[in-house]
């Protein structure tokens, strides 16, 4: 069994209106040192072992559904765990 942590973020070239609003809010809370905030998504997947390579499976899942390659990038971490 694998625990997979997936991080989806907006591409750098894409403006992040939410991140911008949070940056402004932090400035008004008197944190002028905060230069930028980018908001993304974090997902945890539990995937059972199969004949297929885990990286192949995760990359497929991410590019098909979890991230939209037009505006988003993704990265992930895989951890092998013992089924409970």
């Amino acid at each position: 069994m694998y625990k997979v942590k997936v991080f989806v973020t907006l591409r750098e070239s894409v403006l992040d209106p939410q991140g911008k609003a949070v940056t402004n809010s932090l400035h008004s809370l008197n944190y002028p040192e905060v230069a930028d905030v980018r908001i993304g998504k974090y997902m945890e997947l539990t995937i059972e072992k199969s004949d297929r390579d885990i990286d192949e499976v995760v990359n497929e899942i991410c590019s098909k559904l979890l991230a939209n390659p037009v505006i988003e990038n993704y990265r992930y971490e895989v951890e092998e765990v013992v089924a409970q």
Partner: peptide, 10 residues
Amino acid sequence: PGAMRRNESL
């Protein structure tokens, strides 16, 4: 082609 982002004003 393309994608949608949140409205600029949120």
